[in-house]
Design a protein around this nucleic acid. Structure first.
Length: 713
DNA sequence: TTAAGCTTTCTTTTT
DNA sequence: GAAAGCTTAA
């Protein structure tokens, strides 16, 4: 017996906010703007988040109910952070505001309205791994004669289909262009695409792209739902608009209604658009005014973050791009050291430089958490990571394998998924294949037995325990089967307590399985323990599942003690540039700035690729508040003692020399690298330099640097 | 039919 | 330097 008691939404903006004292005139204009479509071009460090936060606070103060505000951000974390700040400002309970990524908001709306699209509201969300699993099944369905000629792998197929979904470029065009090597297979690929859609539907499952397409379909094909959405959300604010794709732009515009409703504000910086590879369309922001007549454009160009020398450099860099809104960031800070250009001889030396300089900064009183090392691709971090370990400098790596994508996490979660959505064939196969004696063939047979009557988790369990399934089981699998079914029962019984469900799975058998299967089983068990603790916050399987799949920034190290500990016990951040977006540090090291690595050669094949890569470089540099170090190793050791001399990145070569200070590295004679005291900056003529750059020749574009003997160590 | 062992590929970026 | 995919033995 339960009684529903609805707490009304009340704007309780009891605190008067002194908007004009807290904001500059440009920001204030945005915060107080009237109705009508708005485009805010907010340069790096211009107080974009602050402005958005105050805008929301302003709306609340004007009496807009929190539930009428939709705030779409790039990560769920960003949304949460912004709402927390709004809460601090206004004392309005901010959780009534709808906030999150496109995917998470889409998922929320789709849960409400899944039926009109022919889905059940318990639909599963498929991540990339699941997507590949489904595609592999589709290939088996169609009996693709893989041996004959090269057929795209599930991974490549997933990429192709996703690009198609996010850019709307017809499959045939993609197959004629970027995927031309598969032209022979056009027909089969079309069949697989159709099959893939059908299989997802049968499994009551949506992939990431479906969350967007489904949301748009709600708006475009179901006027009643669309009307309700528009009525509910009087104010839509979208952050990081430069990274939206076509589908997202259409969603935004459809949510806002046809022109007459002037409630749409999009904020972004075209110079920081770095997600074209996954379908982000630069035109969304460039052409927003055209698409939305009457758009008022605001510009935030005062930079509060970086020192003037850093800003001069970033401005100089981005001006090499042609396709963009014309803007120049103005420094609001004074002084500052010039950005450093550090030519190193080989990766270990670059790493040693970074480590030594970090030690110096720490001695100067800079917290380690105020220092970041950024790189284009994860692989570039290796030398630096090794060196930080050797120097005993605490660090945390952002990114890498996502927590949820690790096999042991997915295994456990698949149990929950199956009980939440009993039609989820991918989840079923995953758990079934874990049982001893069951492989692909048996799993397929079992599913054929039970698939039809699996609309309900209880019915599914009964079917799995039934005689038809037992008849199919090979002898080897019979012993463990009852325990498996019992575990599923237990999970189902703990529908409201995901933590209990997870511990049940572990205790029943998965703990032993992990111990037997993985050599690093302790750390995996620890992960699972963290998963259970994390799950304790949720009182439903669906809540937990959604969070796990859509919480992009949840990584292995974040879940457990590390993130919590990181606050007091600060550590240097190692991150890809993409993941560093929106963050800032006192000192930033950008490493591995080499031709052939940055810009990434693959990106250069794409039209506009170089400009996109330059924007990535721009994003990296603009993360720095006070100190910026640009470094590269000029020699890469090849195999068998050989070495390759490399060029510094073209993005360095094109920079005006006078905006950079060239640092020359010298190594002390006889000093073991890392054990002695390297002196990065001070030039000591008595020291026999392993690397020396002629001070009269700019080292950046000098091909004939003395190489020394870097690998003598 | 399964599972272990061996080879290949991957790495540009992520919801 | 891992994880997926293929081959082969049982």
């Amino acid at each position: 017996m339960a009684r529903r008691f609805v707490l009304p939404q009340r704007a309780r903006a009891s605190v008067e906010i002194a908007f004009d004292k807290e904001l500059n005139p440009q920001q204030l204009a945005v915060v107080r703007c009237s109705a009508g479509p708005k485009l805010v071009i907010a340069g790096a460090g211009s107080g974009k988040t602050r402005t958005l936060t105050y805008r929301v606070a302003y709306l609340l103060e004007q009496g807009v109910p929190p539930g009428a505000i939709l705030l779409v951000t790039f990560t769920n974390k960003a949304a949460r952070e912004m709402m927390r700040r709004v809460g601090d400002l206004t004392r309005v309970e901010p959780h009534h505001i709808w906030g999150g990524t496109f995917h998470s908001v889409g998922a929320r709306l789709l849960r409400r309205h899944a039926q009109v699209l022919g889905y059940d509201d318990s639909f599963s969300i498929l991540d990339e791994g699941d997507q590949r699993d489904v595609l592999r099944l589709c290939m088996t369905d169609l009996e693709v004669p893989v041996e004959q000629r090269r057929f795209p792998s599930p991974r490549v197929l997933a990429g192709l289909l996703s690009l198609h979904a996010n850019t709307r470029v017809p499959l045939d065009d993609l197959l004629a262009g970027r995927y031309a090597r598969f032209l022979d297979w056009v027909e089969t690929i079309h069949e697989i695409a159709a099959r893939y859609q059908a299989r997802k539907r049968a499994a009551n499952a949506m992939d990431y792209d479906d969350l967007l397409r489904g949301w748009l379909a709600l708006l475009q094909e179901h006027p009643e739902v669309a009307r309700r959405c528009r009525e509910q959300f009087g104010h839509i604010l979208v952050d990081e608009y430069q990274d939206t794709n076509i589908v997202q732009a259409e969603i935004v515009e459809a949510m806002a209604g046809e022109g007459e409703v002037g409630n749409l504000m999009v904020v972004g910086d075209d110079s920081q658009s770095i997600y074209a590879f996954r379908g982000a369309n630069y035109d969304n922001i460039l052409k927003f005014p055209e698409r939305n007549p009457g758009t008022e454009v605001f510009r935030l160009e005062a930079n509060y973050r970086s020192t003037p020398p850093i800003l001069a450099l970033t401005n100089a860099s981005i001006h090499h791009n042609r396709l963009q809104f014309d803007k120049t960031l103005e420094a609001r800070r004074s002084d500052g050291m010039p950005p450093a250009l550090v030519a190193c001889s080989y990766p270990a030396q670059e790493a040693a430089f970074v480590a030594e300089r970090i030690l110096q900064l720490r001695d100067e009183g800079i917290e380690l958490g105020e220092i970041a090392i950024l790189y284009r691709a994860h692989a570039h971090r290796l030398a630096v990571e090794t060196m930080l370990l050797r120097y005993d400098i605490p660090y945390e790596v952002r990114g890498g394998l996502r927590f949820f994508e690790q096999a042991h996490i997915k295994d456990v979660v698949a149990h929950l998924r199956l009980m939440h959505n009993p039609r989820d064939e991918v989840a079923f196969r995953r758990v079934a294949l874990l049982q001893a004696g069951i492989g692909n063939v048996t799993a397929e047979r079992i599913w054929r037995q039970v698939g039809a009557r699996s609309a309900d988790a209880g019915a599914l369990i009964e079917a799995l325990a039934g005689p038809e399934v037992l008849a199919v089981l090979p002898g080897k699998a019979k012993a463990g089967w009852p325990a498996f079914v019992a575990t599923l029962r237990e999970v189902r019984g703990a529908e409201d307590e995901p933590e209990v469900a997870i511990r049940g799975i572990l205790e029943a058998w998965y703990h032993d399985y992990v111990a037997a299967k993985f050599d690093n089983f302790e750390s995996r068990v620890e992960d699972l323990e963290q998963l259970a603790i994390f799950a304790a916050q949720y009182d439903s399987l669906s809540g937990l599942l959604e969070e796990l799949l859509l919480l992009g920034e949840l990584y292995g190290q974040d879940v457990g003690g590390r993130a919590a500990a990181a606050d007091d016990d600060s550590s240097v951040v190692l991150s890809t540039i993409h993941q560093a977006k929106g963050l800032e540090w006192h000192a930033v090291f950008i490493i591995h700035l080499l031709e052939g690595f940055f810009p990434s050669p693959r990106a250069l094949d794409e039209p506009g690729g170089e400009e996109e890569e330059r924007r990535i470089f721009y994003v990296a540099m603009t993360r720095a508040r006070d100190e910026l170090y640009l470094s590269y190793p000029i020699i890469r050791p090849g195999g068998y003692g050989s070495a390759v001399v490399q060029q510094p990145s073209r993005f360095l070569q094109e920079l005006p020399e006078e905006l950079l200070e060239t640092w020359q590295l010298e190594e002390e004679v006889g000093a073991e690298l890392g054990a002695g005291e390297a002196r990065p900056a001070a030039a000591d003529p008595n020291v026999d330099a392993a690397v020396e750059a002629d001070p009269n020749v700019d080292p950046v574009w000098d091909d004939d640097q003395p190489l020394g003997e870097p690998w003598a160590h």
